[in-house]
Design a protein around this nucleic acid. Structure first.
Lengths: 119, 119
DNA sequence: ATAATATTTGAGCAATGGCTCAAATTTTGT
DNA sequence: ACAAAATTTGAGCCATTGCTCAAATATTAT
């Protein structure tokens, strides 16, 4: 029969491979990749890290990052759509903060990884 | 003097903002973004998740993901360069595995985030 | 040696991404 | 009502990216 295995003799049998495929393809992987992708841009990571220290307005984030207000606003729109940040309008300003602290934890873990990778 | 603050009256003073900027711009942020970016692609995330279950060869990963061997190899090259995976050549096959388990932990935390985000 | 298998590599291509710029929107101050 | 300030939005542009395809490399089997 057609075993669909590329290379023989093979350490992983078909059932094992199928089990792994099912576990890997589980729902939520795509969504998880989206979250990681959001964290995977220096600008957005700076924004999130800044907001993890203190809520602040778009303009502050622009100064902080050295980018235009427009650029920041575009990124915030993305982050808002993904529920990573939330914005509260006060007067003519909008104060952004982290939507919850899962993200802060993930950033912390990421930092830890980098530190140990270097040390 | 030119206070370089966009919007007045302002809740965060200049020193506070400068302190945050320093903390955000710390060395390692760019590197951290690179790691997150690596996790931020469905194909690579599948590869890493599969390898977190069991080491396997390029061909298995291709079958598992439904992509070409070439595509997988290109991604593995990237992941190897970032020290996220390592490959051991055995015969004409190369068996890949996670370089360490930091990444596995980060994926686990990511999954947890998604789960709680939905629940 | 020759052929077959497993992987790597480079070029090229369509799609995506992050920014800028200009214009629209919303709110405050006079 | 009008101007100024803070943010949002859409279009456009260049760089990056993830794949395919073809060819090269390395190892095993005959």
């Amino acid at each position: 029969m057609d075993r669909e295995l590329c290379c023989e003799p093979h350490p992983l049998d078909l059932e094992e491979l199928e089990r792994i495929r099912a576990e890997v393809d589980e729902e939520g992987l795509w969504e998880m990749a989206e979250v990681f992708k959001a964290l995977g841009d220096p600008t957005r990571l700076k924004i999130l890290k800044a907001l993890s220290i203190s809520p602040m307005c778009v303009c502050d984030l622009a100064h902080l990052t050295g980018l235009s207000v427009s650029a920041i606003s575009h990124q915030l729109r993305l982050l808002r759509a993904m529920r990573l940040v939330k914005g509260e309008k006060i007067g003519r300003r909008v104060f952004y903060s982290l939507h919850d602290d899962h993200i802060a934890m993930m950033i912390k873990l990421g930092q830890q990884h980098i530190r140990e990778e270097r040390g």
